[in-house]
Design a binder for these strands. Structure first.
Length: 271
DNA sequence: ATGACGCCTAACAGGCGA
């Protein structure tokens, strides 16, 4: 772990683990998280670079459907009770690789990649809302377990207008509509707490910037990568930040990692 | 903004992302 008694948890939409592998390995070495949730791995399970991350001390649980989507959890504090998907998970039409969970060092961790939704009049939008509603029901069940819980990932919803660089441009767009925000509120109504990270630069803790038109350099971003913490975890959170350094330079993901430090003593399960 | 960038693939053009 990063420091004695501190659990370092992170979530990162890497936009292809294969394309991002050199940067991922550098980032793991420099940041030293205990547990990492990845999204958009876009990597068949058999092709996941388990040896490369294993050399840095991480065990891998991944869930993929091939070309699109893909989620994974990396842990160096144990990886037990891995579950792929969740009961009642909607599909389009079949369930996609959008959720994986595991118990890591005494923390229950979910890595989720919420459907994009595309546009409010697109069938993918109804799919997105159905998926979030089913996630809420699955987490309601999960929360009957007293183990501290972190639901991390790319939620593809900006919780408030402060979480988009120009709300006026998002009228009639996905990611900001009242039903999407209500779906996030329903997760918080379960007792989950939005762990808002420190931006490190500027007033908004954005986590995503489009590749095009110099959006990152103008800080025209969105906060859509979230960590939702159960009460026992939320009480233990000491700090959180967006690692915007990881968005810089040549060949970045279009998302930056969110890093959370919590005052939890990792309990090592069997590997 | 019609655009842009970058990922993927029974690829060399089209789907997808947000």
């Amino acid at each position: 772990m990063g420091q004695a008694g501190i659990m370092r948890l992170a979530t990162w939409n890497v936009n292809s683990v294969k394309a991002r592998l050199p940067r991922l390995l550098d980032w793991l070495s420099g940041t030293a998280p205990d547990v990492v949730c990845l999204q958009e791995t876009k990597c068949p399970d058999g092709a996941f670079p388990v040896a490369e991350v294993g050399a840095l001390g991480y065990t891998v649980a991944s869930h993929s459907d091939g070309r699109w989507n893909g989620v994974a959890i990396l842990s160096r504090v144990g990886l037990a009770d891995v579950t792929v998907g969740f009961p009642g998970e909607p599909g389009f039409p079949e369930p996609e690789a959008r959720a994986i969970s595991a118990t890591c060092g005494g923390l229950r961790v979910w890595s989720v990649y919420v459907p994009n939704g595309r546009a409010p009049d697109d069938p993918h939008y109804a799919y997105k809302l159905a998926w979030l509603a089913a996630l809420r029901d699955a987490l309601d069940t999960e929360l009957t377990n007293p183990t501290p819980l972190a639901v991390c990932g790319d939620f593809n919803v900006a919780p408030t207008d402060d979480d988009v660089w120009d709300p006026a441009l998002f009228v009639n767009s996905t990611h900001v509509t009242p039903p999407e925000r209500a779906a996030l509120a329903a997760l918080r109504d379960l007792g989950l707490v939005d762990v808002v990270p420190t931006p490190m630069k500027g007033p908004h803790p954005f986590t995503y910037w489009d590749y095009r038109a110099g959006m990152f350099h103008q800080n025209k971003g969105m906060r859509i990568d979230l960590v939702y913490a159960s009460a026992p975890l939320a009480r233990a959170v000491r700090s959180a930040y967006v690692d915007r350094e990881a968005r810089k330079g040549k060949g970045p993901s279009d998302h930056a990692p969110v890093v959370v430090d919590a005052d939890l003593i990792p309990t090592i399960e069997s590997f």
